[in-house]
Write a protein that binds this DNA or RNA. Structure first.
Lengths: 192, 192
DNA sequence: GTTGCCATGTAAATGGTTACATGATTGG
DNA sequence: CCAATCATGTAACCATTTACATGGCAAC
């Protein structure tokens, strides 16, 4: 009687199942692959993977076998039928299109009105700098051919195109702000 | 001696300080404003605001006064000088351009290769549907004139433009997938 | 022989989400 | 009097992050 059946997988579990399906069999290999490819568009935790692997094992979604390298113990993971079903169930689930967005630069922009008009432009400049740095990072990785699988490459290309779009949006926003003198005094300063 | 000085604000604290600076004086009003505007681009928790308001008070970043409506107790918050400094410090901080991206549709796309070729297109279709729904939602709100402050409007416009961009990217990706027969067999199925 | 990588894990803290609990006021 | 809205909070849970701890193996 599995602890957590097919019903609800958390994000760590999803990444783990996907990685194992792709053939990354050990915790360490998964960790490395997360660093290599997923980090770009998914802030995945790395500290939680060993506990979660155990939970998945207990839940019967993955099976483990000992596969030592010399004297170093090593666990090799494979998907069970239930695990594969959970993974494809998640991937083909058409009910929940969770599009959450959590962008600190945008949150800052939302509050830029509380700054002095002269300082407001800096918030957008910052935001543009962040996108620019991301453009550099992703395009460098793409040029190095780091993304073998076509779907990995697609997601990296998405990251690149999105960062370029964001950079351009910021440049345009800067122009608009300058044209309007960084916008009057929308600040509703609190009066005690 | 404040519990948490200017140094590090968590995200809830940031939203709270910004909201108070804008003149949303009570926990309830802040909650309502989060629902109204911030939800679109910032998945902010609403359950954590009262405890956090107390922490901010203890830390000397906001001051509170009782402001009852009839027999209903009510707390009115104002920024202290330290609070205003913390807020502007965050807004003008040029060290940390945290651009985290956490998109479940993209994560699914990354693993689409483990599905049968025929099913892969569905992952992108899903993603497009999510963006389309977002486009509808944000443009409806913009047309209702829900965003008074120019910076609120800018963030909403960002949300709209981004969703449109994402929708179009997906449409293009769908075309590419179809043109290539949803891409061969990149699946590295695990062998036990 | 020591640096760096492979490999697995634990502990503590923080943060965020949901659900619950309470009660006053206003308007129909 | 009932429903909706204003208003404040707590408790429990889950997820995430960081830091730490351990040890083998390979290469230089």
């Amino acid at each position: 009687m599995p602890n957590r059946p097919t019903e609800q997988l958390n994000n760590t579990a999803r990444v783990l199942l996907g990685m194992i399906a792709e053939g990354h069999a050990t915790g360490y290999a998964i960790k490395a692959e997360i660093e290599r490819s997923t980090r770009l568009y998914w802030g995945a935790s790395v500290g939680g993977i060993y506990p979660e692997l155990r939970r998945l094992t207990d839940a019967g979604l993955v099976s483990v076998c000992d596969d030592p390298r010399g004297g170093t113990r090593r666990h090799s993971y494979t998907l069970t039928d239930a695990g594969r079903q959970a993974l494809t169930g998640w991937l083909t689930d058409c009910s929940e299109p969770v599009l959450e967005m959590r962008s600190e630069p945008l949150l800052r922009l939302r509050f830029a009105g509380v700054l002095e008009p002269a300082e407001r432009l800096g918030v957008v400049r910052q935001m543009r700098a962040a996108y620019e740095a991301r453009v550099e990072e992703v395009s460098a990785r793409l040029e190095l051919g780091q993304f073998d699988d076509p779907f990995h490459r697609m997601t990296a290309e998405f990251g690149l195109a999105y960062s370029e779009w964001g950079r351009d949006w910021c440049a345009d926003a800067e122009r608009r702000l300058l044209a309007e003198g960084c916008l009057g005094q929308p600040v509703a300063t609190t009066k005690a």
